[in-house]
Amino acid sequence: MSIDLQFGLAPLILLLILLGLSSLRILREYERGVIFMLGRFWKVKGPGLVIVLPGVQQMVKVDLRVVTMDVPSQDVISRDNVSVKVNAIVFFRVVDPQKAIIQVENYLVATSQLAQTTLRAVLGKHELDEMLAERERLNLDVQQILDAQTDSWGIKVTNVEIKHIDLNDSMVRAIARQAEAERERRAKVIHAEGEKQAARSLLDAADMLARQPAAMQLRYLQTLTQVAGDKSSTLVFPVPVDLLGSLLAGARSPAPGDADPGGGKA
């Protein structure tokens, strides 16, 4: 009788052992298990060893690591009616496993679709120059909008980076012409500013030389030295205009002993 009892308990013990082994789950440090008891949420367990009763409880694993999601290229029309293709990267992670499983069917797909829509909506409010020059501010705007909308899903969007803004060939040529015209404008402005400064310096130098005639003579002699040092058969001898004017005035004035033009002496 005892032998029959032992043979009857052996399958039961074996069944309990198999049931106990099948109820054991091991979760890694970055994983959490959302436990459902008879279809209703019970608790979040992990990491480590977790017991899940077969047939009574079900567990859904959730990864808490940062997810890097590539947003496919999106056709965006800017505020100044320029068509561009933009793609980006979204970095996010699950902070509340319960919400991530219960509030949304598939949080990965939902976040991807929301990121695509938000990217088109945000960039469509800006002009092309703002997209190219203020990319950091646009990244922050998209990240804040995504983070606010995914908060009810238990998801934290940590960063958004716009990777590429692709333009068609005609727009690239137009931007190149615009950049070339802008550089020519800057060159002309710089040249005009240089001429203005040079004219101001010449005016100051002329005023200074006019106050001291001896300084003009020194400059005159320095010019002769520079011309004479040049090995050339032709010698250019500069004569100041003021000197010629004084010589001509002296030649035209009558000498003290000359006769009066009216004839006779005074």
Rank of each mutant, 00 (worst) to 15 (best):
L167W: 02
L119Y: 11
V239E: 08
R32I: 09
L243S: 08
I190H: 00
K99S: 09
Y30A: 10
T111W: 11
G229R: 12
E193L: 00
I26Q: 11
L119Q: 09
P256I: 05
V241P: 01
D258F: 03
R79E: 10
R65M: 04
I101R: 01
M37T: 05
A255S: 11
D96S: 07
H191L: 08
V84F: 08
V104E: 02
V236S: 12
F237A: 02
P240D: 12
L64S: 03
S23D: 08
A187D: 09
M1D: 11
K43H: 15
Q226F: 10
A251V: 15
D166V: 12
R120A: 05
R93M: 06
L209T: 14
P97W: 05
Q222P: 04
T150D: 00
I101P: 08
F92H: 02
S112K: 15
D63G: 03
L244Y: 13
L140H: 15
G124I: 05
D151I: 03
L16A: 06
R173Y: 13
L14Y: 02
F91I: 11
K156D: 06
V62K: 02
N139S: 04
K61G: 15
A176S: 12
A198I: 03
G48N: 07
Q226M: 04
V56N: 00
S246G: 07
M1C: 11
V90L: 09
R200S: 12
N139W: 02
V109W: 04
T118K: 01
T234M: 14
G154Q: 09
V236H: 11
H191Q: 13
L132M: 00
G46M: 03
P240F: 00
L14F: 05
L15R: 03
R135M: 05
R177D: 15
R173H: 13
V157K: 00
D166W: 12
V189T: 03
T111C: 14
D70R: 14
K163N: 08
Y220M: 06
M1P: 15
N81K: 11
F41T: 00
A199W: 03
I77N: 14
T117E: 14
L49H: 04
Q98W: 00
D260S: 10
E184D: 08
R25F: 01
S246A: 15
D230A: 07
V104L: 01
G124T: 03
H126L: 08
L243C: 03
A214Q: 15
V71K: 15
Q217K: 09
K85V: 10
L218I: 05
G55P: 06
R79S: 10
G46W: 10
E184W: 00
A205R: 04
T118S: 04
L224W: 06
P54Q: 06
T111A: 15
L243M: 10
L38P: 02
E31H: 05
A228E: 06
K188L: 06
